[in-house]
């Protein structure tokens, strides 16, 4: 349930109404008036309110939603969509990076390889998972698992949810750039279907390192950007903190799912339940499962050579210029 600390400003009317309904539901039972009708009417109002608010989210509000800790993360989707999950650890060279998780699983009975960023729902888990910001060994683990999937002709499903690759001493010493670059190259020639889904925040190169795919999906309220809105505002307007500049950067960068679909950077938007994925993890998972299934079915029909050729051609066409 939403607490004050995790309620986003624009969701306050929703939280208010939720509290009212809650109060009525738990009111003493021996009342003369029937509260059931009242509850039903308020719930209908709540649903409309959610719909209205979420239909009109501004880009910066979407950033807030995408980063919200109540949102379903990689492992929340794994638990609801897949069966038989066996998590695999480590890059076989340095250590296991908990900011990226992966392993075998089944989607509708068929084996798939899952790889994704994992953030933490609380501070303790976030420290362990480094807020979903991987080190090179995380990307190398991801690549190891993708190559493993390729070896056994199993499709790869990736889940993107990171503020970015971690900018730290160890990460640089161990070749953060190389690890990301290697994944981009290898993913562009992997001989099995790849579907990438941006489930929360798609932060720059650290996101793309899991994002070169035959189909790129994006949850309705996810964002995907070359730089954080804060970083952009800080560099261009020397102010990464004020709400005005963050808002300006969020608008300018075109980071929402409809923007990306229009630019053909993504292939499909996955609808989120009323009030966002965080309002209903089950419904969000069902929605994603359906889209994953449809896409995977189509991709399974393609021979590896065709798959790789199409994937490469898609990326070779990306960009807009004048000539």
């Amino acid at each position: 349930m939403a607490t004050a600390a995790t309620t986003m400003d624009f969701e306050k009317p929703i939280a208010e109404l939720e509290r009212k309904i809650d109060e009525l539901k738990h009111a003493p039972g021996d009342r003369a008036v029937n509260v059931d009708d009242e509850i039903i009417s308020l719930e209908r109002k709540l649903s409309e309110l959610r719909g209205d608010i979420y239909k009109n989210l501004t880009p910066i509000q979407r950033v807030q939603v995408a980063r919200n800790v109540r949102r379903p993360f990689m492992l929340d989707y794994v638990a609801r969509i897949f069966t038989d999950f066996v998590e695999l650890h480590g890059d076989r060279a340095f250590r296991d990076d908990a900011a990226i998780v992966g392993g075998w699983a089944r989607l509708d009975g068929e084996t798939v390889m899952l790889v994704g960023h994992q953030r933490g729902h609380d501070t303790k888990e976030n420290l362990r998972r480094n807020f979903g910001m991987p080190h090179p060994e995380g990307y190398r683990k991801a690549l190891r698992l993708m190559k493993l999937a390729e070896k056994f002709h199993v499709p790869v499903l990736t889940f993107i949810d990171t503020p970015g690759a971690y900018p730290g001493l160890g990460a640089e010493e161990r070749g953060q750039s190389e690890a990301i670059a290697r994944n981009l190259l290898e993913m562009s020639q992997l001989q099995v279907p790849i579907i990438a889904t941006v489930i929360g925040e798609g932060g720059s190169g650290g996101a793309l390192a899991l994002g070169v795919a035959d189909r790129v999906l994006m949850m309705e309220n996810a964002v995907y950007s070359v730089i954080t809105v804060e970083g952009c505002a800080a560099i261009l307007w020397k102010d990464g903190k004020s709400p005005e500049m963050r808002d300006r950067a969020a608008n300018a960068l075109r980071i929402t799912s409809p923007d990306l679909l229009e630019m053909r950077v993504i292939d499909e938007i996955v609808p989120e339940p009323e009030g966002g994925a965080h309002a209903n993890h089950e419904a969000a998972a069902r929605s994603l499962a359906e889209v994953l299934n449809t896409n995977l079915e189509e991709l399974r029909k393609l021979r590896p050579e065709r798959l790789v050729r199409r994937r490469r051609q898609k990326y070779l066409r990306m960009g807009q210029w004048a000539e």
């Binding site: 670059a181 980071i255 630019m263 990326y315």
Partner: peptide, 20 residues
Amino acid sequence: MQEGVLSLMQMAKASAMLSQ
């Protein structure tokens, strides 16, 4: 930055070419 996520995709584009 000024070309947003399209700039990000150039990383994948160049890498796709190099894989060939």
